[in-house]
Simulated assay, not measured.
Amino acid sequence: MKVKKERVFPDAHQDVEAVREIPDTPQTRAPAYKLAFNDDDFLCRDDLRPVRLQLELLKPELLMQEHGIESTIVLFGGARIPEPSKKHTARTDTLANLSHYYDVAREFARLMTVESKKNGGKENVIVTGGGPGVMEAGNRGAADAGGESIGLNIVLPHEQAPNEYVTPDLCFNFHYFGIRKMHFLMRANAVAMFPGGFGTLDEMFEALTLIQTNRMKPVPFLLFGKEFWQRIINWDALADAGTISEEDLNLFHFVETAEEALEYIANWEEPA
């Protein structure tokens, strides 16, 4: 049995508590006297941005390691897509018609989580942006299967707040979009794209670019809803123009149902 080594130096928590007992004087009240790592004003200075970037990379990484998360299935999609029972709240008829993808995303996440639990539930864990809409459906589907799921939330003025289905110990909040997107893809065994807006498009094209340029290993890349994706993006025009190659059109695959997606993932072979 491994014996835990006794600490040589006091840990940070001990020093934070020790400082509370120091006499109150003009010197100890001054901002300069605060422990640097326990000084919010100092950590939020512009000069400390590199440190904050590192902290946002480290915190989720360390906590996911401690939780035993080995790999993920990434689920991207629109925050504004309602579940079908609430489609009357949609701001447009088109958005209401997209509401069935809420159920598709929920079922996809449920089926993936059922498979994940067969191997201990630490591989192919569903990860979403943790917000409403399709993201909620993904976390909800994992909960339907009695499994865990990850939410990578971000501070935004309006829509972003964690949905109730994210596993609390795996619900993270970010300031930097770039670090958040790294965490989406660092453990990805597959990427599932559902209809969405600017954020979804940004996430999709960044992931495709990383795969196209060999900065990320190829993984099954699923676009749910062929009609939607072909309507908003003229993929063939990009290839015809030569701005992408014909082979780049093979980086992704259109699917319509959760079952079709699982079959594709199960039979996918990495390009030679």
Results as ranks from 00 to 15, higher is better:
residue 189 N to G: 09
residue 4 K to S: 04
residue 86 K to Y: 01
residue 74 V to H: 11
residue 62 L to F: 09
residue 195 P to C: 01
residue 3 V to S: 10
residue 211 I to Y: 06
residue 37 F to T: 03
residue 35 L to F: 03
residue 8 V to K: 15
residue 122 K to A: 03
residue 195 P to H: 05
residue 46 D to T: 05
residue 189 N to I: 00
residue 60 P to W: 08
residue 203 E to T: 05
residue 182 M to W: 13
residue 35 L to T: 00
residue 143 A to L: 12
residue 154 I to N: 12
residue 129 G to N: 06
residue 12 A to S: 12
residue 118 K to S: 03
residue 232 I to R: 15
residue 178 G to T: 05
residue 56 E to K: 15
residue 84 P to C: 01
residue 94 T to N: 11
residue 227 E to L: 11
residue 112 M to I: 02
residue 253 H to G: 02
residue 219 V to D: 03
residue 221 F to V: 00
residue 210 L to K: 13
residue 224 F to P: 12
residue 71 S to Y: 05
residue 194 F to A: 09
residue 79 A to W: 07
residue 63 L to Y: 09
residue 118 K to I: 01
residue 85 S to I: 00
residue 222 L to M: 14
residue 43 L to F: 01
residue 12 A to F: 10
residue 65 Q to R: 15
residue 161 A to T: 07
residue 169 D to F: 00
residue 237 A to W: 04
residue 182 M to D: 05
residue 11 D to T: 06
residue 257 T to C: 06
residue 195 P to M: 05
residue 35 L to N: 03
residue 115 E to H: 12
residue 8 V to F: 11
residue 233 I to R: 14
residue 262 L to K: 13
residue 142 A to Y: 07
residue 172 F to E: 09
residue 230 Q to W: 02
residue 152 L to W: 11
residue 195 P to L: 04
residue 54 Q to K: 08
residue 221 F to H: 07
residue 128 T to Q: 11
residue 84 P to S: 04
residue 155 V to Y: 09
residue 141 G to N: 07
residue 238 L to P: 09
residue 82 P to Y: 02
